[in-house]
Structures are given as structure tokens and as C-alpha cells.
């Protein structure tokens, strides 16, 4: 397994996708956070939670990276070369998910603490000390959320195998579906509170928009939502690995 992790690390580090996605994730997230804090105005109470407003940007980029690392392997045929070198597919794919996940976790932590640092820099007077579990979850929680998001991307990539299709599904889901479901009359709210990225945002507690939607009592607490999100991501990874093992490469 150590060998497989090393192999996947070489593969990830020797193409440009990982570097680009990392750079975009960090720059876009911190950039948005800076704009949010900078234009918040005096009547907006800046908190640890709202300093993380830009983190969803980076999260989406890491979802894209997760999809890309798999679908490009199928596109260029290196998936076959990989299975030829290591015929037991499940360990290879889990190693891949682990390596991408670790990179994503590092990016997530950088975004989390970076956003907080920026907020402190731009608004020295605000209450931004990390007091209690909720504050820590909001900042350090970006690590596991990014990790799981990238793993979810790997699962989607394995199920769909096609770059265009994979990216379309990932982006339409995160950018449109999750936002529009809430508009469905009567049942919209009930579905919305079970959507994966809503759950992820509840876990870190940075979902700045949702209080305005008047969702009322939520079915799960932050930790429950975290576990729920993790469950969905790991389930999709498992489904992806299962199909890859069974199908012809």
C-alpha cells in the first residue's frame, strides 16, 4: 500500500492538473474571503464562521480535481497501464483517493486558516479568536470537508469515466441543483436539508446564506451533518471502486 501511495503521488505530481487546481482553489477562496470581509461594512458582525465565506469556491475546485484525476486516466489510457502494472484494482484506486484526499485536506486547511488570517488582517478589531468547538470546526473543518469532497470527485470519476460528463455532473450539481431544489414548492425545503453540500456547509457552520431561507429546525446537528456528508462521499467512492473492479478497463 505504501508503494501504491508513492505511485499515485508521482502520478499526481507529474501532471499539471493538481498544481493548477491547488492554485485556483487557494487564490479563489482567499480572494472571495477578502472581498467579503473587505466590503462587509460596519453593521455586519464579522465572525470566525463568516470569515470562511470563500471556502466553497475551493471546495468545488477540489471536486473537479477529484473527477479529473480519474477521468483523465481513462481518457489517456493510463488507467489500463496502471491496472497492467498492478492488477488488483481496489487498492490502486483507494491509494489514488487517499493521495488526492490528502492534497485536498492540506488545501482545505490552508484555505481555512488563510481566510481567518486574512480576516484578522483586514478587520483587526473583529472578534476572531478561536473559542470553542464550533469555531475550530469552522476553520480546521475545511480540511476534512475538502478531503471528502475530493474523494467524492474520485467516486464520480470512476462511475462516469468521462471528463466532460464528470465535470458537467459535478458543476451542475454544486452550482445549480443544490441552489434550485429549495425553490420547489412544499417539498423543496425538506429535500434541501438532505443535500450533500448543504450538509458539508452545516458541518463547518459557514453557510452564510441559509438562515435567510428560513428552513426552521434542521434534522441533524453539525456533527451529524458531517458524518452524513462523509457517508455520502465514501459511499460514492465505494460504488466507483466496485464498478471499476468489475468492468473491463
Amino acid at each position: 500500500m505504501i508503494t501504491l501511495l508513492a505511485v499515485e503521488r508521482i502520478k499526481l505530481a507529474t501532471t499539471q492538473a493538481a498544481w493548477w487546481c491547488t492554485a485556483i482553489a487557494v487564490v479563489a477562496s482567499l480572494g472571495f474571503a477578502a472581498l467579503f470581509v473587505g466590503f462587509a461594512g460596519d453593521d455586519f458582525a464579522l465572525t470566525v464562521g463568516s470569515s470562511q465565506a470563500g471556502a466553497t469556491f475551493g471546495r468545488t475546485v477540489l471536486l473537479v480535481l477529484g473527477v479529473l484525476v480519474v477521468t483523465t486516466e481513462y481518457h489517456w489510457g493510463t488507467a489500463r497501464t496502471t491496472f497492467q502494472a498492478v492488477p488488483s484494482r481496489a487498492p490502486v484506486l483507494l491509494a489514488k483517493a487517499t493521495v488526492v484526499g490528502i492534497l485536498a485536506a492540506v488545501v482545505g486547511l490552508a484555505v481555512g486558516f488563510g481566510s481567518l488570517g486574512l480576516a484578522m488582517l483586514l478587520e483587526p478589531g473583529a472578534e476572531l479568536a478561536l473559542d470553542g468547538a464550533a469555531d475550530w470546526r469552522a476553520v480546521a473543518g475545511q480540511g476534512p470537508v475538502y478531503l471528502l469532497t475530493a474523494v467524492l470527485g474520485v467516486g464520480i470519476g470512476l462511475l462516469l469515466r468521462n471528463t466532460a460528463l464528470g465535470l458537467a455532473v459535478a458543476l451542475v450539481w454544486t452550482q445549480l441543483v443544490e441552489g434550485l431544489v429549495v425553490l420547489i414548492p412544499t417539498i423543496g425545503d425538506d429535500i434541501y436539508v438532505w443535500l450533500p453540500f448543504f450538509a458539508a456547509s452545516q458541518f463547518v457552520g459557514s453557510d452564510v446564506g441559509s438562515p435567510a431561507l428560513g428552513l426552521g429546525e434542521l434534522p441533524l446537528g453539525p456533527l451529524g451533518y458531517g458524518a452524513y456528508f462523509a457517508g455520502i462521499c465514501l459511499l460514492l467512492l465505494a460504488a466507483g471502486v466496485w464498478t471499476a473492479v468489475r468492468r473491463d478497463a
Binding site: L4, I10, T72, W76, G77, R80, V86
Partner: peptide
């Protein structure tokens, strides 16, 4: 099987490096 089964942005050496690593 197919000479094009290589990632176009990876160098020839990097391609062989990961394969070598995988089989120690």
C-alpha cells in the same frame, strides 16, 4: 498495447518512474 496510453503532460521519465515504482 497502445503507444498512446501515456499522459501527454507527463515526461517520458516520469511515466516510466511511476511504472517502475509500482513493481519495485
Amino acid at each position: 498495447l497502445d503507444a498512446k496510453w501515456v499522459h501527454p503532460n507527463r515526461s517520458a521519465r516520469a511515466h516510466l518512474n511511476w511504472m517502475a515504482k509500482s513493481n519495485q
